[in-house]
Write a protein that binds this DNA or RNA. Structure first.
Lengths: 161, 161
DNA sequence: GCCTTATTGTGAGAAAGTCAAAATAAGTGT
DNA sequence: ACACTTATTTTGACTTTCTCACAATAAGGC
């Protein structure tokens, strides 16, 4: 429970640094996101309610949105998934999503420090000032690859017609 | 109107090649996506109804989903936006989205032919078999940059508090 | 032309998130 | 410690985007 305090204080300091009040709702959301990276709002609500049962869904949406704007959290939206949140910000890491089971893994960028941040514009295109480059790898994780090669092992959860 | 026929026949052939029946709904959707790249389902419905007024929204969703699975269309989901569709498939181009006005532009990949397709895995991570790498650049387009520097020029549509 | 079955239409409904306004509580000053 | 100001949270209704099940229709092979 003492390591908890460290985290609490660190988050509290960050909140104050951004001119935000330190509320138990924000602390609960931050702790929940930290403990469950790559989670949607609903899961964060459930996790945060473990320590703050009266927390409401709206508060989670508001807090997540605000903290994302402050860059204390990072949001990304994989295809066919609600938005996911994580506390790992500031680096420009990317994400790999298994299109079969939905598992998400962090991927450090291969290309130096600011990867893919310099798109190659057409002649006629008016270049934008790029701020971030979200790279979303989609593939099949090892577990799903195996269970697809052994179709006998597969329950009836997702069979193609 | 003759160029229309060429497109119709090309799409019809592609549909047959994928074992799909050639329906006026599918042709209308394909033509609409081709004429309005980076459009959401609702806009595609509106555009397609210009030539097929009795088309329904459900059909558009079904057709878009199916043709996307066949890789005749490509879908991508920018943050805070419904899914967008385009007919440009097969190449691995990416997209730049203006976070201010939402405009989308195609971006050819800077890094050779199969860009960013080789993520750099952690030691402990179990690598996935990557199939596609969707790169989503987010920035501010030239128009929005200018209108933000001349705040007097900005109507009341989106003012920060 | 007819028949089979893929495709489309109909209507209900879920999921994820948003908005406005009232209730609460953090931080400030006393 | 107490009160006050206003940020924050809650409440509850609502929107948007998309999905599902099943009935109606029509494309393509015979």
């Amino acid at each position: 429970m003492t390591e908890h305090f460290d985290g609490q204080e660190a988050w509290a300091a960050a909140l104050r640094a951004h001119g935000r009040r330190v509320t138990k709702q924000r602390l609960a959301v931050l702790a929940a996101v930290e403990r469950h990276p790559h989670s949607p709002a609903e899961s964060i609500l459930a996790a945060a309610r473990a320590e703050l049962p009266e927390l409401t869904a709206q508060s989670v949406y508001v807090v997540l949105g605000d903290l994302t704007d402050l860059h204390m959290l990072r949001r990304f939206e994989p295809p066919h998934s609600p938005a996911l949140y994580e506390t790992r910000v500031g680096d420009n890491h990317h994400h790999a999503i298994c299109i079969s089971c939905g598992r998400v893994e962090d991927v450090d960028c291969a290309v130096g420090h600011a990867p893919c941040l310099t798109p190659h514009w057409d002649e006629q295109a008016k270049p934008m000032t790029i701020q971030i480059a979200d790279v979303m790898y989609q593939g099949i994780c090892q577990d799903c690859q195996q269970s697809q090669q052994l179709p006998s092992n597969r329950p009836s959860e997702e069979i193609e017609k």
